[in-house]
């Protein structure tokens, strides 16, 4: 196997997964540019020049190891062509510069962790607790999301390739993406400001936070900045944000807002006193324009 690749090299492996992160990546809209910068040496869903066996028995170094799906050391949970997931990870993680945990499952354990919270985890985290498959590994970057957004992945790879500064937050998520909240850029913001709930699903008007369980104000991600599939987002299509980039995903009781003494949870980083005061004031006014349909048929 030749050791010379003019482009940065990627090996992509899977733990316990629905393949959703791979399929989300296949939607990337500048794939030619991606191919110009990177070469996928191995991907389980693609016919690559090398098979898994050849990759594992080679001694080549690669630039990036992308891991999709939850981590486990239990052999019965994952068997890839006769190799356990642990064998794959141990073999490859030492031969790469960076390990990208792609998606919420690889980052925190995600939806599969619900089955066995001890043996199914993320790379460096189990839910929001430190210590997953590894207790320490300096090569890891987490890019959660169920699924991952193709741009979160490729932008991170490009920043690494160009040796630009990549700042990470406490969960090792790139700050460029995860300093934003899903709430930022949501078209329903004005209804949020004036505390006007949507009456039902299937309407353009109203905020999904107060009754429908929207997690937008406490979920780190730039979904409403860069949009999904370049055209929309959950909240733009009238579905509440499910908080899928956070370590506590999946939460229970989705589609309803848990309240305490009829008060909803507070947006991230805002004090209860400040938030409830503003809420009280906003609620005491009636804004006629916001009570009407966005587009009225009669003038």
């Amino acid at each position: 196997m030749s050791n010379f690749h003019p482009k940065k090299t990627i090996v992509w492996i899977q733990g316990i997964t629905c393949n959703g992160d791979s399929h989300s990546f296949f939607n990337y809209s500048s794939m030619k540019s991606f191919a110009n910068n990177f070469e996928i040496i191995y991907h389980p869903l693609l016919l690559t020049d090398y098979n898994l066996e050849e990759i594992l028995t080679s001694r080549d170094k690669y630039d990036y190891l992308i891991i999709e799906g939850s981590f486990t050391k239990v052999r019965d949970y994952v068997d890839r062509c006769g190799y356990s997931f642990e064998e794959l990870v141990e073999n490859l993680s030492k031969r790469v510069d960076y390990i990208i945990c792609a998606g919420t499952c690889a980052s925190f354990g995600g939806i599969f962790r619900e089955r066995d919270k001890i043996n199914i985890t993320g790379g460096l985290f189990s839910g929001d607790k430190e210590g997953g498959y590894w207790s320490k590994n300096k090569k890891v970057i987490n890019i959660p999301g169920c699924p991952i957004h193709p741009r979160w992945l490729v932008d991170t790879l490009l920043i690494l390739k160009d040796e630009k500064k990549l700042l990470l937050d406490e969960f090792l998520r790139p700050k460029e993406v995860f300093s934003y909240f899903v709430h930022h850029g949501c078209l329903r913001n004005e209804y949020f400001e004036w505390k006007i709930d949507t009456k039902n699903f299937g309407e353009k008007e109203g905020c999904l936070f107060y009754e429908q369980g929207c997690r937008g104000p406490m979920t780190h991600a730039n979904c409403n900045k860069i949009l999904w599939n370049e055209v929309s987002s959950k909240t733009r299509a009238g579905s509440p944000c499910l908080g899928c980039t956070e370590p506590d995903f999946p939460r229970t009781s989705v589609y309803e807002t848990k309240t305490r003494m009829s008060l909803p949870a507070v947006p991230y980083g805002i004090s209860k006193r400040a938030y409830y005061t503003v809420t009280g004031v906003a609620k005491s006014f009636r804004v006629d324009r916001l009570e009407q349909k966005l587009i009225e048929e009669k003038r």
Partner: peptide, 15 residues
């Protein structure tokens, strides 16, 4: 993209 106009995203929309 055609689908996501109505589903918000693909995959894993809740439309």
């Amino acid at each position: 993209k055609m689908g996501a106009i109505f589903s918000g995203q693909w995959p894993h929309g809740s439309y």
